[in-house]
Amino acid sequence: MNFNPKSKVSKIVLLITSFVIVSLILWNTNSFFKTFKEEERHKMEIWATAQLELLQSSETAELGNLTLKVFQNNTSTPMILVTKDGAIRTNNIPEEQASDSLYIQRKIKQFESENTPINIDDNGDHLQTLYYGNSEVLNKLKYYPLALLLIILLFGTVIYFFFKTNKASEQNKLWAGMAKETAHQIGTPLSSLLGWNELLKAENINPEITKEIEKDISRLETITERFSKIGSLPSLEEHDIVVETKSAFDYLKLRSSKLVHFSFKSQIDATNVLLNPSLYQWTIENLVKNGIDAMRGKGNIGIEILKDGNLVHILVSDSGQGIPKGNYQTIFNPGVTSKKRGWGLGLSLVKRIVEEYHGGKVKVLSSSKQGTIMQVSLQLIP
């Protein structure tokens, strides 16, 4: 669903523009590298000409100032000069390495792969061969496009995660807005139901009927409260964890299939925890409903409350098919579900309520083909 087509078009334009700019930079860098390499080749050809002039001169004094200046100015390009007799002379190569014949042979092969050797001939008579490598500046320039690509890749990654985070933020705002609007829409018929229930009481009908209606109205009020709190930070108050857990458990027990067997056990009598009762009970309901779905509506559901130092653990167990170990973390991601018609929001809400709102932890404690145990851990009040 596209909620902001203009924004989408602008992002595409930005990406295309970035790609064009990057391509131009790389093309320009490559062109500059080739030009610089040609200039270096031309410089080496001049040096080779000066070397030929040296060989043709009987005495150094006969050399012109220009030739001497050519020799003096070449301080950056590494060179190896090989005569027709096999004698080797080096230039701009450290002395300790220049004396190593194996190193020189490797360098000759390297220089030959980098640049075409220059033959120094005198009227068809081959005198010397000049092997030269890339200067330090040229080598740095050669790796510049790779460094640029790495920077662009990192920049693109940052942009990608920025857009992704921005999109997730927009979706969260949308869902929060829809939830609050749903709570607002439920409010009007809920008020009417309260009025109709009072009229039913005045008609002297079976009190059990109006009592059950009141329970369902109370349930709708709880749901409305939950939806109204999505997207805002809920207030936490001191509550008995055993009482709140038992309340959510009993409600589901009365309204579930008789094929599901419920059991509740607590090793502690009363323990206070900072809770938002409405959201906490939503957590228990989601975990229990997930367990019932995993059992396909038939099996055993149990809740056990344990104390572990300054923590309280709420264990929700089922006798379903189990969860693959590789999915222990992903089941809490939004949209992950094994149900054909599920939205994959239940466990995502559980994780958000427990960890973000209550500062606790939720995880798959254990799972096998015999069933699954989910654990919610909360901090006790000292």
Rank of each mutant, 00 (worst) to 15 (best):
F3Q: 11
S10K: 15
K11F: 08
I12R: 11
F19C: 13
V22C: 13
S23Y: 07
T29Y: 14
S31N: 15
A48H: 00
L55K: 13
Q56W: 11
L63Y: 04
T67R: 02
T67M: 01
N73A: 13
N73S: 12
I80W: 03
L81W: 12
I88W: 05
E95V: 07
D100R: 02
I108S: 08
Q110D: 12
F111G: 04
S113L: 03
I118M: 04
L127D: 12
N134S: 10
S135Q: 04
V137E: 14
K173I: 00
K173D: 01
E181K: 12
T188S: 11
P189N: 02
L193A: 08
G195H: 15
N197R: 09
I209F: 13
K215P: 07
I217V: 07
R226N: 14
F227V: 05
S228V: 01
S228A: 13
L233C: 06
E237R: 14
T245Y: 06
T245N: 07
K246H: 13
A248Q: 01
L259T: 15
N276A: 01
Y280R: 03
I284D: 00
V288N: 04
K289P: 09
N300K: 05
G302P: 02
K307P: 00
L311E: 10
Y328M: 08
Y328E: 11
F332M: 01
G335Y: 00
S338N: 13
K339G: 10
G344T: 09
G344V: 01
L349N: 15
L349R: 15
G360F: 03
K363V: 01
L365K: 12
S368E: 00
K369F: 11
M374Y: 12
L378D: 00
L380I: 14
